[in-house]
Design a protein around this nucleic acid. Structure first.
Lengths: 341, 341
DNA sequence: TCCGTTGTTTGAATCGTTTCATTGTTACGA
DNA sequence: TCGTAACAATGAAACGATTCAAACAACGGA
């Protein structure tokens, strides 16, 4: 019982031709009831399982889609992956997941692997500048959709989120709840996402003549980085009344350092808003307001765009940009009357 | 340029036989320098990429391993996955990842898919009682290793972590730092992991005649559940001096509610220890002591056990049980002298 | 009885690799 | 010059499923 049963074995066991077995599997209507039953019984008795390699070889293409993300541990991508898997399942395709871990060579390995597997197409959240690799793929006829990155529409389709709009939303919300002396806490603005969010925030602040926005650089995008920014603020004294952090982890860190003083209150003295709406946001000491990215829509749309590219011959690419959503929680509740008034 | 180049195209283009091209790819030493160069140039010019389906078909087996986890969003599994991928890469295999999401039918779908793909073997963290499915796989010759579940050694290999030992470690640490009135906070003890951790804790407490252990049930395993347990404790007053939570999220919730009172201090008044050592543990308001599970070792060993099963004919299964590790941070620092003495 | 139609079943050809027995080539010693 | 290694290159067969033209069967109408 070493080699598993093939369609030929089934055919012999049921005393029919191999073509008939294939028809039972793929076009049951073409086969008479009697033989169908016989074949199905044989399949059952032999424990036959289709050999996907043989199917693919014949078909010339697999029923899988490659998806390469920057970090499976990141809830943002986890959510995108799940949505993509569900959407692909509806089309009868499975998703092969690769985690590049921000590493260009791992990314390259996965591209090779997926190409050898003859995936229908590729969804990728690229590490760096892989345009050369991707151009090659395009020549070879492997449709590609960029995820979480805006692409040159003449070359690729893409799905991304409007970070400028997200930044605007966050700052506008702080302004709308009466704050005027705002601060932006973000990692290095060399990160595109951070720069865009800041730009959006600045746009909102310009709308209010009496509002200001101070930019505070953080050393990374972690809770600890946020905490040291918060500590710095507490020590120096001159505090903003609204803080927008480029990511929830930073915001949680800032929250920790501010509340640890036991004299500052959130949101009465300082309002705080983050970005990403991670699971922890809701269970922070003070539930954190945040900007939620439509991850499900991203994943689903990426698959849909890919399906379009697979089907049509003439490649009309589309760059779909989603708008993030404001999630209001306690950390940006109304300011203290005495202070605000 | 629709169909991609095959080995035959390469052979024609380089004016050699197909077998020679194959040798260039698989046994470069068998081919003379001259022809090798010619073939490689042809490969490059045509943009030839091996067709994995054809390779597999010929080989009868794929170079992939199926891995089905309960939840890719869970850091525990994320880490196991990463370790498994790295270990598999060393053996020249790739890992196909499936996320069952605690859903038996998704799990079943993945088992089907992987079987069709003729994976070398399967690593699975089963949803429920899938022994029937797995027995079938075993009959079909698909080696299987259970992950994070102790298996009947006569049937399967498995890798798991000794939760009883983990519970003992945690409680023993609280006792060693002078605490005597302990509490265990855990989800329903119907979860095996929770029950085992509790049992280990009880074992440790029995070693100290003057120590007690109170069991507090929580409504789930989340930060919010932990917070309500904490609130309950604060309200009722009669407080333990050491708390062991069955998971870090619970512990963080308890920590929030205790510190919010602004009268209780961690660790001086109450020591707190969690389980899992998630990333957030280190960046909690008071860095959280925890029990770390050797996730990397789990993933790596699972692959190694699978490799053993793949290679040897006679299936001698092994159940490898790892011992978790105590990670001491500030939340279980020394108790207040006045209180402890 | 024969023909045409409809519905089933057949089996060879095909997909792209790898394998391996065979053939071809070269060089060297006898 | 011949024989024989040693080395290179060849190309048919095999893997297992799908496809499709062709063969076959059954039946009703002429």
């Amino acid at each position: 019982m070493n080699r598993s049963a093939s369609i030929k074995d089934v055919a012999n066991h049921a005393s029919v031709a191999v073509g008939t077995v294939s028809n039972v599997l793929n076009y049951p209507d073409r086969v008479s009831q009697r033989t169908k039953e016989r074949v199905l019984r044989a399949i059952d008795e032999l424990g036959f399982v289709r050999n996907d390699a043989a199917r693919q070889l014949r078909a010339g293409q697999s029923r899988t889609i490659g998806l390469i993300v920057l970090d499976v541990g990141n809830p943002f991508f986890t959510s995108v992956v799940r949505a993509a898997e569900d959407a692909a399942a509806l089309l009868g395709s499975a998703v092969l997941l690769g985690d590049s871990g921000h590493n260009a060579s791992r990314e390259s390995n996965y591209i090779d692997l997926f190409q050898e597997q003859r995936v229908q197409g590729l969804l990728i959240s690229p590490v760096g500048d892989v345009t050369d690799r991707l151009d090659l793929l395009r020549e070879r006829g492997v449709p590609t959709v960029l995820v979480d990155r805006l692409a040159d529409e003449s070359k690729y389709s893409s799905v991304s989120v409007d970070d400028d709009a997200g930044g605007y939303l966050a700052a506008r919300h702080l302004l709308d709840t009466g704050r005027r002396r705002l601060a932006f806490v973000g990692g290095p603005t060399s990160i595109r996402q951070v720069a865009d969010r800041l730009q959006g925030a600045q746009r909102a602040v310009k709308e209010e003549p009496d509002a200001t926005l101070e930019v505070l650089d953080s050393d990374g995008q972690t809770v600890l980085a946020g905490r040291s920014v918060g500590n710095m603020l507490v020590e120096r004294g001159d505090l903003p009344d609204g803080i927008f952090c480029a990511n929830d982890l930073l915001a949680l860190g800032v929250m920790q350092s501010l509340t640890m003083t036991h004299t500052l209150r959130i949101p009465e003295d300082i309002a705080l808003i983050g970005y990403d709406d991670i699971d922890f946001a809701v269970s922070a000491v003070v539930p954190l307001s945040s900007i939620r990215q439509p991850t499900e829509a991203l994943g689903r749309t990426a698959i849909e765009l890919l399906a379009e590219e697979v089907e049509s011959e003439n490649p009309r690419h589309r760059a779909v940009v989603f708008t993030p959503e404001l999630v209001v929680r306690q950390s940006t509740g109304p300011a203290e009357r005495s202070t605000a008034g």
